[in-house]
């Protein structure tokens, strides 16, 4: 399937001279087309930097990032980012935010409107088309951001702690909504979070990162039976085992940091 992300010997350095800091070092990782992969790590481990590098917002210092074998060159419409702080255009309505990418692509107006409506319906925001972002709650804003990114149909969704600012019940319902959408649309998802439970619940694979400089520590395959309800899944032994494995690996990392 299309949408394979290959990261090879990636290095990212910020600043120069005395202020030079290595954010990411020697990171090699591959996400298959259509896979849901999460990246967890302590704060400051460079996981957001990694996401922005894949998105093409930042330039790599060395190493390569390719999509389906082609090295990326800056941002492109094959990848779509969902930011933690939504980054919606405040001067555009919900509807206009969702049509933005289609406008840039030169899609004719009528087609634009039907596509946008389809994705607004998908994230359950029908009736809010003409609201401005300031009139929406955090959860609704994040759904608009998701619809906006889905609307121009990127193969790869890059999500930067998208539910980090929301409270627990809202988070859970958005997680389920995201899983449904992922199941329907067959996108590759790279999901950044610091929440182990969220990572295990959502993903097929979880990469744990170390910090200073950030690099890949371990990768855990998550083979959960996702046919049941949320309750069945999160209370299962398998879920607990996966959570423990990831948590231990992550905790070792924090522990080392503290003793340092």
């Amino acid at each position: 399937m299309d949408g394979r992300v290959s990261i090879s010997e990636l290095e990212k350095v910020y600043g120069e001279g005395a202020e030079r800091t290595k954010a990411i070092e020697d990171l090699t990782f591959e996400v298959d087309g259509g896979e849901f992969a999460s990246v967890v790590g302590p704060s400051g481990c460079g996981k957001s930097t990694l996401l922005y590098l894949i998105a093409g917002f930042l330039d790599v210092t060395s190493g390569t990032i390719s999509v389906d074998g082609n090295p990326i060159q800056g941002p492109g419409t094959d990848r779509g980012v969902v930011f933690q702080n939504y980054a919606l255009f405040p001067w555009r309505t919900v509807f206009e935010n969702v049509t933005y990418g289609l406008e840039e692509d030169g899609v004719p107006k009528e087609e634009r409107q039907s596509i946008a409506q389809q994705y607004i319906d998908m994230v359950d925001l029908s009736g809010f088309e003409d609201k401005y972002p300031k009139e929406l709650s955090g959860g609704m804003k994040q759904r608009v951001a998701l619809a906006r990114t889905l609307a121009y149909e990127p193969k790869i969704l890059l999500m930067d702690e998208p539910f980090g600012a929301l409270d627990q019940p809202l988070r859970e319902s958005l997680q389920d909504q995201l899983l449904d959408i992922w199941g329907d649309l067959e996108k590759t998802v790279v999901f950044i979070t610091h929440d182990v439970e969220e990572a295990v619940y959502l993903s097929e694979r979880v990469m744990i990162m170390t910090r200073h400089p950030g690099t890949k520590k371990t990768v855990s395959e998550i083979n959960l039976d996702r046919s049941g309800s949320r309750e069945e899944i999160v209370t299962s032994d398998a879920f607990a085992d996966y959570k423990n494995t990831v948590w231990k690996s992550l905790h070792e990392e924090t522990q080392t940091e503290v003793t340092l």
Partner: peptide, 29 residues
């Protein structure tokens, strides 16, 4: 103007030349 607004526009295909009119000006208004 927030960097992430500029990034959002770029990922949705706005070229550097058009960024001024599409994002910078409305955001700075």
């Amino acid at each position: 103007v927030e960097t992430k607004l500029l990034w959002s526009a770029k990922m949705m295909g706005t070229s550097d030349r058009r960024l001024l009119w599409r994002v910078v000006m409305p955001a700075a208004m």
